[in-house]
Amino acid sequence: MSTTTKKTRIIYWTSTGILALFIIPGFFFAGSEMALKGTAHLGLPLWFHWELSIAKFIGGLVLILPFFPKRLKEWAYVGLGIDFISAFIAILAVDGAGGMWYSPIVCFVFLVLSYTTFHQLWADKKY
């Protein structure tokens, strides 16, 4: 294995792991008072909160587990990307530039890093 491929694998699994550690446990706290108040604060309906929590949990699992097909991983990246961009817009629209507006951007950066290294590894068939 070349040094470049090894470095790419480390970056891929680190960025994907950090992303999964942020996304997957959130599902288990979706019913918490803080999560429900945060959704209400943004003006989103309760059904959307649950739908998004379940979808993010599934998307996080698809990214972290290696046996899922490439096409399904692509859709997980797309869905999570839309989620992070939408969260950024929603937080800015409601709270302005204060608060945790940067949190979805940080997650989006890890998502893009994971996505680009995933494709580098897939092109080299070293995934």
Score class of each variant (00 low, 15 high):
T14I: 14
F110V: 10
A55G: 03
G99N: 02
T3M: 06
F28D: 06
L65Q: 00
F28C: 01
F67G: 10
I54D: 09
R9E: 00
L111W: 01
M34D: 13
L61N: 08
R9C: 03
S15F: 02
S103K: 07
F29E: 11
G59W: 01
A90F: 13
F48V: 15
D83W: 14
T39N: 15
R71F: 12
L63M: 12
Y127N: 12
L61T: 05
Q120S: 11
A93T: 11
I23P: 01
I54T: 15
W13S: 08
Y115C: 05
L72Q: 02
L80N: 06
W122C: 04
L72Y: 12
T16Q: 03
L92K: 13
K126H: 15
F48E: 05
G17T: 08
A76D: 02
A93P: 03
K56E: 05
L61Q: 08
Y12Q: 11
M34K: 15
W101K: 07
E51N: 02
S114Q: 06
F28I: 09
A90T: 05
V62F: 07
H49I: 06
L36F: 00
F22I: 11
K73M: 10
F27A: 07
T39S: 15
R71M: 11
A123M: 14
I23F: 03
L111G: 05
E33C: 03
V94A: 10
A55D: 02
V106A: 14
W75I: 09
K6I: 12
I82S: 13
F28Y: 13
A35L: 12
K73T: 06
T4C: 04
P69F: 12
I18L: 13
F27K: 02
G43H: 08
L42K: 08
K73V: 02
L61F: 10
S114G: 15
I23Q: 00
F29W: 11
P45C: 13
A93Q: 09
I85Y: 12
T3A: 10
W47H: 06
T116C: 10
S103P: 00
E51A: 08
F108A: 12
F22Y: 07
L52P: 01
V78T: 14
F110K: 02
L80G: 03
T14L: 10
F108W: 10
G59T: 02
T4S: 06
K7S: 07
A40G: 04
E74H: 05
W13H: 03
L46I: 08
G43K: 07
D95W: 13
F84M: 12
L46N: 09
I89E: 14
A40N: 08
Q120M: 13
F68V: 05
T117H: 06
F108M: 11
E33I: 09
G98Y: 09
M100A: 12
S86R: 14
L19Y: 01
S15T: 13
F84T: 02
I11C: 00
A20F: 01
F22L: 05
F110W: 07
S15P: 00
I85M: 15
F48K: 09
A30G: 04
L121E: 04
V109S: 07
F84W: 07
V78R: 09
S53K: 11
A35C: 12
I82M: 15
V94D: 06
G17M: 07
L80S: 08
L80K: 09
